[in-house]
Amino acid sequence: MAHELNLKKALAQQQNEIDDFTIYSMLSVSDKYEANKLIFHKISEEEKGHYTYLLSFTKQELKPRAHVVFFYLLLSKIVGISFTLKFLERREEDAKQFYKELIAIDDKANAIYEQEINHEIELIDMLHDKKLLYAGAIVLGMNDALVELTGTLSGIALAFDKSVVVGITGLIMGIAAALSMAGSAYLESKENIGAEIKPMTYALYTGVSYILTTAILVAPFFICEKISVAIIWMFFGAVLIIGLYNFYISVAKDLPFWKRVREMSYITFGVALISFGIGYVVKHYFGIEI
């Protein structure tokens, strides 16, 4: 029974190895940076060696799973290779355990175990990932939109009586602020950021991230008639944005996830609470209703 279980584990790991070999091989062809190509080729050869090693145990040839390969290649195009490959390597925790157990059966597994622990992550940390270079622009646009719009929408939601009016006001302010922020980001990148970053692209990342964040935050006010319900959904959208972005950064840059989520949440919801209070005062004492 134990032998059957080990065979299943070996086949599962062998499947991962042939999938990874295919992913890295295709990246070594498609990536435009020569240094990256060399890294991908090196890792792909190691994955192929792991596959061949396991084949000696299982005696079963396996083919790469097209949907798995397609998913990771598509992900690399959307969010960059650093996030994609570190996300891919997270499943290596099971691989480490598997090869650690295999050492008791065959000493050759020790070399693969060492590679799984150190070598691949070290290589991935050397990758040139242009999308990651623009992470600062995304933070600039997204974080500013979160703080400014959650605060603004919370404040005017109490001053106005119509949900759609809140949404339109927030949308106009958001688009205007996005254009202003993009312009500021362009000038900042020309003065303070390294030569690898193009000012126009940096400004575009900033503006687009601001507008996308704006769209998510104001959408509930166009959908929900009750302002109280729209505010709840707006905060849910803010939490979702904060969570998704910090998950990306925590994986791509090996940064603490929950610490960053807490910091952004405190700032965002602190400003929103203050603005909510100001809106209450304006409505209660000045009687403004639109």
Score class of each variant (00 low, 15 high):
Ile197His: 03
Ile78Glu: 12
Val69Tyr: 01
Phe269Ile: 03
Phe21Cys: 04
Ile249Cys: 07
Phe222Thr: 02
Gly151Glu: 03
Thr206Tyr: 02
Glu263Tyr: 09
Val229Ala: 08
Ser209Trp: 00
Tyr51Trp: 07
Gly270Glu: 06
Cys224Ile: 10
Leu153Val: 05
Ile288Tyr: 00
Met264Ala: 09
Ser180Glu: 10
Leu7Arg: 00
Ser76Tyr: 00
Pro256Ile: 06
Lys190Val: 08
Phe71Asp: 04
Asp254Gly: 11
Phe247Asn: 07
Met234Asp: 03
Ser56Lys: 15
Leu11Thr: 03
Ile172Trp: 13
Ile172Gly: 14
Glu17Leu: 07
Lys9Gly: 06
Glu225Asp: 14
Ile232Gln: 09
Phe57Arg: 02
Ala66Tyr: 10
Ile124Gly: 00
Ile274Met: 14
His67Cys: 11
Thr169Ala: 13
Leu212Tyr: 00
Ala111His: 10
Asn6Pro: 08
His128Met: 13
Ala2Gln: 12
Val261Tyr: 03
Val281Arg: 04
Lys108Phe: 11
Ala95Thr: 06
Tyr53Phe: 15
Lys108Val: 09
Cys224Thr: 06
Thr268Asn: 05
Pro199Gly: 08
Leu171Asp: 01
Gly141Ala: 11
Ile290His: 14
Asn118Leu: 10
Lys77His: 13
Ser250His: 05
Phe276Arg: 02
Ala195Trp: 11
Tyr245Asp: 02
Tyr285Gln: 11
Leu204Asn: 04
Ile223Ala: 09
